[in-house]
């Protein structure tokens, strides 16, 4: 699905990604962990074209996307959420998700202005269905900027799913949530985000990684230091060492 080789991304003299090799198989759900500043979010930004890679190769389903613009890449079937929450604050909750259906194969260009009634009704129902699933149905017509943080995170998830991505990138989907809210988010991701697609999840909450991921990849200083099934990797000495003094993986 996604193959990355010797990927380097520099910001000035700092190498945020320092020759990363990384790959995800179709249908796999991969956890991405590592201390703050280890390059996790940078990797998402490079994969989605927000930051072009300094060097190295980047292939999505065999296609080279290293030099592609973000809108081209996401139209190949990639969607993401953001660690620092990005929503369209002055659009309603419904509009946030509805507008994300843009450029999907079933939305013709002319429907930008005039939509065929039955097709459009089906798509609006799909949006309402996503809002129902994510527990946002009763906030449907509120401006998104007024939602509390957990609702905004769920809105980001609904918006990403509305694009029907084949590769979904989730950047700390439970960041800033209480344990109960986190548990709800884990259920959402397990039930509606992971089935039928490839997922990469960045998360500091190791319980989530254990619950959701088939495989875990650990980054430190822009390199991969460990990879494998969650139970084995989370016991690895190098992983524990990378986290020591910053936060302990067990209770983070």
């Amino acid at each position: 699905m996604l193959e990355i080789e010797r990927l380097v991304r520099k910001f000035g003299a700092v190498e945020a990604l320092a020759g990363l090799d990384f790959s995800v198989e179709e249908g796999e759900s991969m956890g991405l962990i590592g201390p703050n500043g280890s390059g996790k979010t940078t990797l998402f930004n490079v994969v989605t074209g927000v930051y072009p890679p300094t060097s190295g190769s980047l292939r999505l389903e065999g296609r080279d996307i290293g030099a592609s613009k973000p809108d081209r890449i996401v139209n190949l079937g990639v969607a993401r959420t953001f660690q620092n929450l990005r929503i369209f604050e002055r659009l309603t909750v419904f509009e946030n998700v509805w507008a994300a259906q843009h450029r999907r194969a079933d939305v013709a260009l002319r429907e930008l202005v005039l939509a065929g009634r039955s097709a459009e009704r089906a798509r609006r129902q799909e949006v309402d269905g996503l809002l129902e699933l994510t527990g946002l149905a009763d906030r449907r017509d509120a401006l998104a900027g007024g939602l509390p943080l957990p609702d905004q995170r769920r809105l980001e998830l609904a918006r990403a799913l509305a694009r029907r991505p084949r590769l979904l990138l989730l950047d700390e989907p439970a960041g800033g949530m209480t344990p109960a809210e986190t548990e709800h988010m884990v259920r959402l991701i397990r039930d509606i985000a992971i089935p039928g697609r490839t997922c990469i999840v960045i998360e500091h909450k190791m319980e989530m990684i254990r619950n959701l991921c088939d495989r875990v990849c650990v980054l430190d200083f822009g390199r991969k230091i460990a990879e494998g099934p969650p139970e084995a990797v989370l016991r690895d000495d190098r992983v524990i060492e990378a986290y020591i003094g910053r936060e302990a993986p067990a209770d983070a």
């Binding site: 996401v74 990005r86 509805w98 259906q101 005039l114 694009r163």
Partner: peptide, 29 residues
């Protein structure tokens, strides 16, 4: 008014509010 109710209108507002996020929805800003 038709524009504001259409996808195109939402796309214009998305671009105005956060162009990078709009690109992440597949929009050629």
């Amino acid at each position: 008014f038709l524009l504001e109710r259409s996808r195109l209108g939402s796309i214009f507002r998305m671009i105005g509010q956060d162009p990078v996020l709009a690109e992440m929805q597949g929009i050629d800003v």
